[in-house]
């Protein structure tokens, strides 16, 4: 898992990070909607070195039946990493980490999905991490939200996610793998850009109260950048590639 302590310079005196980015610059993000034939909705995302597929099924009958809700639909989410997605082979069985991430992703998407329209049904969101880099839960969420929209499921808003963190005593946008290992704090955030609500927030690492505020604001700005890319992916699918 972890990398040995190295002497990499996380932030040089010109404010350039170890992968050449500025402090407020996200990694390269590419999203494609509608990539699977059988799923009702799907999306593929490349977010830095992350390569993630998301597929959505439903609304459909609930199995097992006792999970069904009479007044609203339920959302189920599975975040799963392939054994080959990381440097050392990962056991394919779901780890405790993956179960927790599945739960927080489900809770981040749920406020956006109008489940009250579909009582007694389930919407299943399956996320497969083909290659993992830092920030895989945010990238996974971005793909899952596009896949939900691609499936035509009524939503109040898009859900866009991006992390911020603290590296070399500076708040930076979109932590990569090295910065996650060597940095001081990592804060993944998911945000509904039109309703202005944070639906996922986690933090590992020590921040002062002022840094905590700045970190949330930085991450929200990143979510807004991701939101534009998500919208473009959906427009490209339904209206054809409109880029000049």
């Amino acid at each position: 898992m972890g990398v040995k302590k190295t002497d990499i310079v996380l932030l040089d005196d010109k404010g350039i990070r170890c992968d050449g980015r500025k402090i407020d610059e996200p990694r390269n993000i590419m999203i494609k909607a509608g990539v699977l034939k059988n799923a009702n909705g799907s999306a593929y995302i490349e977010f830095g070195e992350n390569k993630i597929l998301a597929g959505v099924f439903g609304p459909r009958d609930v199995h097992p039946k006792h999970l069904a809700n009479t007044d609203r639909g339920i959302l189920r989410c599975r975040y799963h990493m392939e054994p080959f997605s990381v440097s050392e082979r990962k056991n394919p069985a779901p780890s405790r980490r993956e179960i927790e991430i599945s739960k927080v992703i489900k809770e981040a998407l749920e406020p956006a999905v109008m489940l009250e329209n579909f009582p007694r049904t389930v919407v299943d969101v399956y996320i497969e991490v083909l290659q993992a880099d830092g920030g895989s839960r945010c990238a996974a969420l971005d793909a899952a939200a596009v896949a939900l929209a691609d499936a035509g499921i009524p939503m109040r808003d898009m859900v866009s996610a991006c992390a911020a963190g603290k590296v070399a005593d500076t708040i930076v946008l979109d932590i990569n793998n090295e910065e996650d290992q060597e940095g001081q704090a990592d804060m993944p955030v998911a945000y509904m850009p039109n309703l202005e609500k944070v639906t996922l927030l986690q933090l590992d690492g020590v921040l002062t109260p002022a840094e905590y505020k700045k970190c949330i604001e930085t991450a929200i700005n990143g979510c807004k950048i991701v939101y534009e890319i998500q919208k473009k992916a959906l427009k490209d699918k339904f209206f054809g590639d409109m880029s000049p």
Partner: peptide, 25 residues
């Protein structure tokens, strides 16, 4: 020292930025 070292949001809805600041206080 009164610094924040871990955060976890849960539940099926979200928080506004102002609410998140209030929670930290």
């Amino acid at each position: 020292e009164g610094n924040i070292c871990a955060v976890q949001k849960g539940g099926d809805d979200g928080f506004t930025f102002e609410q998140l600041v209030k929670c930290s206080e």
